[in-house]
Design a protein around this nucleic acid. Sequence first.
DNA 1: AACTACTTTAGAGTAATTCTAAATTAATCC
DNA 2: GGATTAATTTAGAATTACTCTAAAGTAGTT
Lengths: 139, 139
Amino acid sequence: MRPYTQVLERLRSANLRPTRQRLALAKLLFDGGDRHITAEQLHGEAMTAGVRVSLATVYNTLHQFTDARLLREIVVDAGRSYFDTNTSEHHHFFYEDSGKLEDIPHDELHVSQVPSAPDGAVIKSVDVVIRVAAAQAAQ
Amino acid sequence: MRPYTQVLERLRSANLRPTRQRLALAKLLFDGGDRHITAEQLHGEAMTAGVRVSLATVYNTLHQFTDARLLREIVVDAGRSYFDTNTSEHHHFFYEDSGKLEDIPHDELHVSQVPSAPDGAVIKSVDVVIRVAAAQAAQ
DNA sequence: AACTACTTTAGAGTAATTCTAAATTAATCC
DNA sequence: GGATTAATTTAGAATTACTCTAAAGTAGTT
């Protein structure tokens, strides 16, 4: 269990204390490669791993990590937020049947001719979601 | 108030009876050009217009219309579904500040090199959302 | 060790949506 | 056109995901 230098630094620069709960959640989030996870799922994993942490703290932590750019929030499903440990620019497949998300590497999909934002507004992100489902009638 | 031939036909082909509530909601939805509206908003409009209809029926009707391809459901905001009266292929600007959606015509934005769906799955849609906010720190 | 500010937490509260079971209405059949 | 059957609507309860609150706990500082 080596010290998470990157996490620690990010926490410090965001003025977030490296508490037991934040470090345990960071370990669950960032030790498994690229992940897409909901708050309830992460809370479940913490419980399973024997980490005592409340659901409220999981929500707080996910939002703080998102603000600190350690996570990215993804909305693809009504009434549920996913958090993505991959913060680099990329897009997603969304499996409607299972509710799973999968990264599409940045170089495998290109959006061209992005219209400019209206006056006084700036583009915050360009999000592409390709929804897929078990083979049957498409669209 | 001419008879909504298209709506009536779609309802018929979806085995949905043209009830007072469905016809009134169809009128509110399809009489104003392209619209992006939530269930609560539509229910509010119905109330204002003096149409007696329950919120449950508004939800049922929106989903039935979506299944009948009269509407398209759009998820851009955690915990809120929008319904779009424009069912042709196009994408959206989402104004994070106001919660408003705006169409991007199909020919103004192009997604290239769409990766193919994994085996056994089909692509149901490719949705692009450009999130914009009042000018300040971008991304 | 003491102080102060930040954190965590249980549980209440909220918003959007879905469910349920009873009442209503539409379409069909004589 | 009234009776029958099946679809529809509805109020209100239930559910889900999430946020808030205020009290107790913990971290960093002196």
